[in-house]
Design a protein around this nucleic acid. Structure first.
Lengths: 112, 112
DNA sequence: CGCAAATATTTGAATATCCATATATTGACG
DNA sequence: CGTCAATATATGGATATTCAAATATTTGCG
């Protein structure tokens, strides 16, 4: 049996994971690992319309994954917690192990 | 600049994260940490229609998070990789730290 | 103030996800 | 083979997410 408190935590966790469910957001996170970047920087790196980048950043902000710091006209983004790198690394290892193991034997989500 | 290969990896990773984006799937994962469980077990634990549980399990299966093993009429599910526990723990620590830090100061995704 | 650059938000259409209901498959057993 | 229990899949409606385009906000500067 789950307490209401635990259920709320799982809901919050599920929400948090959504931050990582878009390739472009993962690229953003990956870039921010190298150091803070302005929105303009990310627009250039992603080669994606500014509105889209800003929206992805809002998703990351709302879920507490990145911090925003205004500096003049620019806003610089950075990862809010070093643990985020660790989480990304672990998941990457999981996926890598999966690719390694049953390279062509498994049902892949991309196809369906 | 990103190679096509890297882009594909980020796409696959984003897909993989989707496995964790539902509270009930997180509960399932949490239960499987304690040991393998049949679909019926999970239906009872989640108090959720069997079809819904089966669907969540299919999502987890397709993304390689769980393994299914048939035993007679029952199908037993288990986590496919111990690293999954580690990933869940890290993300939980991230969220816990966030709750701790700015308990009431931040914009929460649940409200909007 | 007025304008330009940087960033954010809104809107609407296309797509995806979730749940409940119904239906299909699979295995055990007589 | 027929039936029941266990599990899986299909369908349709409600809700959420995505992208692009347009618009709004904020800041620096003259």
């Amino acid at each position: 049996m789950l307490t209401k408190r635990e259920l709320e935590l799982f809901k919050l966790l599920a929400e948090s994971y959504k931050a990582f469910c878009d390739p472009k957001r993962l690229i953003i996170i990956n870039e921010l690992r190298k150091g803070q970047k302005s929105v303009g920087d990310l627009v250039r790196i992603l080669a994606t319309p500014q509105a889209a980048v800003s929206r992805h950043l809002a998703v990351l902000r709302q879920r507490g994954i990145v911090d925003a710091r205004r500096e003049g006209a620019n806003v610089f983004y950075s990862l809010s917690d070093p643990l985020i790198c660790e989480a990304c690394d672990v998941v990457q290892r999981i996926v890598a192990a999966r690719i390694e193991k049953h390279n062509k034997l498994v049902e892949w989500p991309m196809n369906s």
